[in-house]
Simulated assay, not measured.
Amino acid sequence: MNERLTLRAGQGGEPVGGNFWREVGGRPTFEKLVRAFYVGVADDPVLRPMYPDDDLEGAIQRLIGFLEQYWGGPATYSEERGHPRLRIRHAPFKVNPDARDRWLLHMRTAVTGLDLPPLYEGQLWDYLERAAHAMVNTFDE
Results as ranks from 00 to 15, higher is better:
P117A: 15
A42L: 14
L63F: 07
I88T: 12
T6G: 03
E129M: 12
Y127F: 06
R22N: 14
I88C: 13
H83F: 09
Y51V: 09
P49F: 06
G10N: 04
T138K: 13
A91R: 11
R8D: 09
Q69Y: 10
W125A: 03
T112G: 02
A42R: 15
R48C: 10
V16G: 07
L105T: 15
H133C: 06
Y51R: 04
D53Q: 08
L105I: 14
D101N: 15
V39G: 01
A134R: 09
P117Q: 14
F37P: 01
P97M: 09
V39H: 04
I64H: 01
V111E: 00
F139L: 02
D98E: 14
G73H: 00
D101T: 11
V24Y: 00
P117I: 13
R85Q: 06
F37A: 02
T29F: 00
G122S: 14
R48E: 05
H106S: 01
R100Q: 11
K32Q: 04
L116P: 01
L63E: 10
Q11L: 12
L56F: 08
A131H: 02
A132M: 11
F37N: 04
A110M: 03
L124V: 08
A91F: 09
G72R: 14
Q11D: 15
H90P: 04
P92T: 10
L33G: 00
R89Q: 15
Q123S: 13
P118L: 02
R8A: 14
H83P: 01
G10V: 05
I88H: 06
A36W: 05
V16D: 07
P45I: 09
G26Y: 01
